[in-house]
Structure formats: C-alpha cells, structure tokens
C-alpha cells in the first residue's frame, strides 16, 4: 500500500516534468519573442522582407515564404513517393519484398539530417546548377532533400492507415470484378483518405522544422525568391545561423522567429490530430 503510494507520487512527478518543460519552453519563447513583435509592429515583422538587425529592421516575410515554399515542395515530393511506396507495399508487392522494403524505408528516418544535407551539397547541388541553372543551392534542392527526409514518416503512417482499412472492402471490390488497381484507388485509398492526409500534415511538420539539412542546401539568401531555382532562407535556418552573435533586440527577434515557427507547427499538428481523430471516430462507428 505504502509502496504503491510512493511509486504513484514518483511517477506523477516524472510525468509532470515532461509537461512542465513544455510549458516552460513555451512561456520562455513567447516571453522573449512577443515583445519585439509588438514593438516593431506585427505588420512590419510578418509582412516586410527587410531583415537588417544592425539597423533595427526585423522583417521575416521572406523567410516565412522560404519556409513555406521549401515545405510545400518537400510535401509534394514526399506525398507522391511516400504514398506510392505505401500503396506498393500494402497492395502490390509480394510479401518477401515487403519484408525488405519496409525496414529499409524506416532506416531512412535514422540517418542524421547532416548526412542528408551533405549528400545534398555534394551530389544534388551541382546537378541542379549544371542542368537547371541558378546557384544550385535553392528551393528545389531543399525540397528534394526534405522530401526524401519525410518519406519514412509519410510511408509508415500511410502503410498503417491503409492496412487498417477493413479487408472486407477489398474482398467486396474484387468480388465485383474490380482489378487490384481499381480496388486500391476506388475503395481503399478513399477509405484511408483522412489518415493519409494526416500523414502528409505530420510530414509537413517535420519538413518545416528541419534545420541542418536545409541550411546546407537552401543557400540562405535573404532576398525574396522568384523561382524554385533561387536560394532562400527558412525560419529555422535564420535562428541557427544568427544565434551565435545575436544580442539584445536581434536575439529577441530570433526568438520571435521561433514563436512564428512554433505557431505554424502547432496549427499543422492540430489539423493532423483533428483529421485523424475524426477518421478514428468514423471507424469506431462502423
């Protein structure tokens, strides 16, 4: 009895420490970042592209655009290949192949991001520069690198979601004479739609938060990009690049960049959660 009580209290403290560190981080980031947004004015902070910390100009619009552009590209690449992988793994590949392919894709998640960035710089950047033009360090290159990095997330969640579709749907469609492909896209993917969408959004969250690989391949220029071959700086890169020498208002502006990122990721996660809850609710009703 007494022992139970002690363990219970100990576990509660451990559980609370995780939550409290989240609360502390949130409070700290907002406390450091919000004042400068208010001082500069939300309009000048979010809607101006002039980032000259030395002159007190803190406009992060170009970086917001950079982050969104790189993430959008990554998610397009990740969605096409990740969903493709998931469909092949669940519907078409013989079991022996699945046993090899699925762990291989999951290993991708374990490669450190600096390695992705390094391969991007050494292999991808020269290829893009030579065949497509521009400096090579660009939105496109970053999108490709990030797209590959989010593949494991999108693939493994999609595989789970597709496998959770009741087998009876597949049987029903096959028994009506549908081919495997018809069964897949007319029934199974429709049934798994909301879960797959949640996988994309979680992938997006990963892509927008990634820093190291992006710093290495995005070029980090402060100008507004005009094509996907132009270099950009993302919100995460901005923090990582400048935090070493930032002080005073400049430091606060970096925290404000973090606040922006924080809010964007929160919104994405909330959307993903809502979608997957709704689909879980539907499944429970069935």
């Amino acid at each position: 009895m007494k022992q139970d009580k002690i363990i219970q209290i100990a576990l509660t403290i451990v559980a609370l420490s995780a939550i409290s560190s989240l609360v502390l981080i949130t409070v700290f980031v907002f406390k450091e970042g919000l004042p400068i947004i208010l001082r500069v004015g939300a309009k000048d902070f979010f809607l101006s592209g002039d980032w000259y910390p030395g002159e007190g100009k803190f406009g992060i619009m170009n970086m917001i655009i950079g982050s969104l552009a790189v993430t959008a590209g990554a998610i397009i690449i990740g969605a096409v290949f990740g969903l493709g992988c998931a469909v092949v793994l669940t519907q078409f590949a013989p079991r022996q192949l699945v046993v090899i392919l699925k762990p291989a894709i999951e290993v991708l998640a374990g490669i450190p991001s600096v390695v992705y960035g390094f391969i991007g710089v050494v292999v991808l950047v020269p290829l893009v520069r030579e065949y497509l033009g521009g400096p090579g360090l660009s939105i496109l290159t970053s999108s490709i690198v990030l797209g590959i990095m989010v593949l494991p997330t999108i693939t493994s969640i999609s595989v789970d979601v597709i496998q959770a579709v009741p087998k009876s749907y597949r049987d029903g469609a096959i028994a009506l004479g549908a081919t495997r492909w018809q069964t897949t896209h007319m029934v199974i993917l429709k049934a798994a739609k909301s879960g797959i969408l949640a996988a994309f959004i979680l992938g997006m969250g990963r892509a927008i938060g990634e820093t190291m690989a992006v710093i290495m391949v995005a070029g980090n220029a402060l100008e507004l990009p005009h094509s996907i071959l132009d270099p950009v700086r993302t919100l995460t890169s901005n923090i990582a690049l400048e935090m070493g020498y930032a002080a005073g208002e400049h430091r606060q502006a970096l925290f404000a960049t973090g606040v922006t990122l924080f809010v964007i990721i929160m919104i994405l996660n909330t959307i993903a959660l809502t979608i997957s809850r709704r689909s879980a609710g539907k499944a429970a009703k069935k």
Partner: peptide, 30 residues
C-alpha cells in the same frame, strides 16, 4: 468478366465507405 457474372454476398454486410448511389454504381464504373 467471371466475377461480373458470378457475384458474391458476404457474411458481414460490406458496403464501401461511399454514398448509397456510389455503392450501387461501383460495379458499373469498374
């Protein structure tokens, strides 16, 4: 063609997660 001519009804009703109309029209689309 065989499965079009020889249809099957399963133990547990297994309509697709689509509308009533889409369920009935499914075979015709296929």
């Amino acid at each position: 063609q065989l499965r079009r001519k020889v249809g099957m009804v399963f133990q547990r009703p297994n309509p697709f997660p689509l509308s009533v109309f889409e369920n009935v029209a499914f075979g015709r689309r296929v």
